[in-house]
Amino acid sequence: MIGLGVLILVFLGYQLVGTNFLTARSQDLGQQTVEEHFVAAQEEIEVVDTLPPPQVDDKDTPEPLPHEDEPPVVHYGEPTPEDGLAFGVMTIPRIEAEHVLFEGVDRATLKKGPGHMPWTPLPGQPGNAVVSGHRTTYGAPFFDLDQLEPGDEILVETVLGTHTYVVRSSIIVAPTAVEVTDPKRGAWLTLTTCNPKFSARERLIISAELVDGPNFAYALADKEFVPQEAS
């Protein structure tokens, strides 16, 4: 009985304290790697697409005005990072969190810090970028994620620059609710973590919309863009 008690104490100590040291070291190394990545990937930034500028509603006219004299908005793409590589830094001022982001959501990658789901767009790109992270172990990057409220900012720095998101919603779903990763028009950032704290029974989902950054104008245009049907 004493042995079992000691084993449980060692387990909790390892999970809740020991794993934090492992992640802190990975974050330090990731900080160096991400700076190297920013330099190396700078030359691989490319223009992926252009769209007509978004239309602006003018209350004095019945129809939205097309801004034909304005240049098209540009979608800047960045190279897809290799699995497990640090590619960006996420800052959440409300909960005083700053974490290096890694590519991938496998077990080994999430031990280093929040990980980007590779089958979703990168943060800062149009669509729905999904980032997952531990809630209570391995540095607990998303420990206070439940404190985020609509209007709170989330900043993500990638090789393109700083992308500013604003939280729109916070929901709790089942771990199998894969629909939260579905593509969306515009540009979104979805954060997923375990819920409640110290349990993997549910998932807390934070949904945030891009409001500023290199691809903001494109994301806005993408949201309004209606493709012309082929005649």
């Binding site: 387990f11 999970q15 794993t19 959501v105 077990r107 999430l110 990980g115 789901m117 999904v130 997952s132 992270g133 531990h134 809630r135 209570t136 172990t137 391995y138 998303f142 779903v173 771990p175 199998t176 609710a177 894969v178 939260v180 990763t181 997923t192 973590t193 375990c194 110290f198 349990s199 993997a200 998932r203 807390l204 989902i205």
Partner: peptide, 11 residues
């Protein structure tokens, strides 16, 4: 540890 916190992935 996965029972405490599996990493928050949805799928």
């Amino acid at each position: 540890g996965d029972l405490l916190d599996s990493g928050g992935v949805v799928g």
